[in-house]
Design a protein around this nucleic acid. Structure first.
Length: 424
RNA sequence: GGAAGUGUGGCCGAGUGGUUUAAGGCACUGGUCUUGAAAACCAGCGAGGGUUUAUCCCCUCCGUGAGUUCGAAUCUCACCGCUUCCGCCA
């Protein structure tokens, strides 16, 4: 959520900033609601003030044993007026809140203009893609030949966009997650965290998935409803909801391995083959809660932590700065890491690292105590995949395959594989 | 799932209809004292919002939401969390 005071005082600037995302802020509607709010709030508060002072007089009169009937008579119609005014104020504030909840974050100044993926800016590449002396297979083919990846079984058990794995391939996926957790906890200073895989609506509102993106979520039929987490970002970032964090604890750095569930309602027809886009996948997530003046540096650091996973796995990748049109609703600036997939002859997203600045924090009421002012102020929140485990599995399979379809285990994963050096 | 208890500021905790403007303590901040620190003493110290150059002033907030009342932390109802006991269970 944007700062309402910013929108009030800099309405035109906010409008033109949001236009970079092709988001049209209804400034007329906002200005109209805002002036109504101002007027009704002032009236309501003066009525409340009068009620309070009159009630106090009644109390005092009663304490002295005086007759309070005349005073009570004066209050007669007063209560109704106040109630009507309070109801109207409540209505206006709800409307303003609804409007505000649907407005995306303002982008950082260095986010490039652009409409789509095609306008994203490549920042750097790491490692030349391997030259194969044979036609490299994609992970679907490789998995089938190994007899360890079965999509048909998953269709029977659940439906489309699920997968089953068996044997060493399962272990490889587990090894990848373990390796990532060890790297981030031991070398990068993150605290390992375990969280619920279902969350309430308040949590999703806090991180920005609700109210706008309910269609992307799986909802559980409970009362009140739970939602399967689309990313560990939701439960982990909500750890600081309604909290005031002491300055000396910042930055908070959490790493969390969870399954993620996405209904991907809007994306049917895209990436229908293989494990690229699934309803359920594993991810190791990095979350940082930072003081505002540190968040840009934290964003660079967090992104480099995700990159380190790819470097140690010796997987070719590039870092891309997302353009205005491709940056997510809540984010002020996002880097994507894209890994080289020989089976597709393309770089594909394997991590997305975002700085949300105070956008989520305002929704979450996540604050820190600024030692300079002594006052609670909003923190900045950041997160990034470190990495998507399922896609890392694919990348390892495709980049480490040999001519006969066997998978060599990357050196850094060998300690987790119980002596297996080659799968197949 | 059943029963009983309980929910108050960063933390502990008093408060059963009217100067509650939420006592008191801890923590924190500033000051006095001290070579320095501690202790002691003095003072300050919740959050959000409105108005304002600023101060002032005003409103809201005692788990959440409804309700009763001129007036609610306090009374009523529902829901949620926690504690204890019983039942069930990996």
């Amino acid at each position: 959520m944007l700062d309402p005071r910013l929108i009030r005082s800099e309405l035109d600037q906010v409008e033109s900033q949001l236009a970079r995302r092709a988001f049209r802020l209804d400034t007329a509607a906002f200005a109209k609601l805002e002036s109504r709010r101002r007027e009704v709030q002032a009236k309501t508060q003066s009525l409340q003030s009068e009620r309070n002072s009159r009630s106090k007089l009644i109390g005092q009169a009663k304490a002295k044993g005086e007759d309070i009937q005349p005073l009570l008579a004066e209050m007669d119609s007063f209560g109704d007026d106040l109630k009507r005014m309070e109801a109207e104020l409540d209505e206006i504030q709800t409307s303003l809140e609804d409007l505000l909840l649907g407005v995306p974050n303002i982008l950082d100044a260095d986010v490039p203009d652009g409409r789509s993926e095609a306008d994203n800016l490549e920042v750097h590449r790491w490692l030349e893609p391997r030259k194969f002396e044979f036609e490299p297979q994609d992970h679907v083919e490789l998995g089938a030949r190994l007899g360890q990846m079965d999509f048909e079984a998953a269709v029977k058990i659940a439906g489309a966009r699920f997968v089953t794995l068996q044997g060493p391939l399962c272990r490889l996926q587990r090894a990848i997650a373990q390796f990532m957790l060890d790297l981030h906890t031991m070398d990068h200073g993150y605290i390992e965290t375990y969280v619920p895989f279902m969350v309430n609506a308040d949590s999703l509102r806090g991180t920005g998935q609700l109210p706008k993106f309910e269609a992307d979520l799986f909802r559980v039929q409970s009362e009140p409803p739970y939602y399967l987490i689309p990313t560990a970002e939701v439960p982990v970032t909500n750890l600081v909801r309604d909290e005031i964090v002491e300055a000396n604890r910042l930055p908070l750095k959490f790493v969390c391995h969870t399954p993620c569930f996405r209904s991907e309602a809007g994306s049917y027809g895209k990436d229908t083959r293989g494990m690229i886009r699934q309803h359920q996948f594993e991810k190791v997530e990095l979350v940082q809660i930072a003081a505002p003046h540190d968040s840009s540096a934290a964003h660079e650091a967090l992104t480099s932590h995700a990159e380190e996973v790819l470097k140690r796995l010796e997987l070719p990748f590039r870092r891309v700065l997302l353009c205005a049109g491709d940056t997510g609703f809540s984010s002020a600036k996002t880097y994507d890491l894209e890994v080289w997939l020989p089976g597709q002859q393309a770089y594909r997203e394997i991590s997305s690292c975002s700085n949300f600045r105070d956008f989520q924090a305002r929704r979450l009421k996540a604050r820190w105590r600024n030692p300079d002012t002594g006052k609670p102020e909003l923190v900045h929140t950041l997160n990034g995949s470190g990495l998507a485990v399922g896609r890392t599995l694919i990348a390892v399979m495709e980049n480490y395959q040999d001519q006969s379809g066997r998978i060599r285990v990357p050196d850094v994963l060998k300690p987790y594989m119980g002596g297996i050096e080659v799968i197949g």
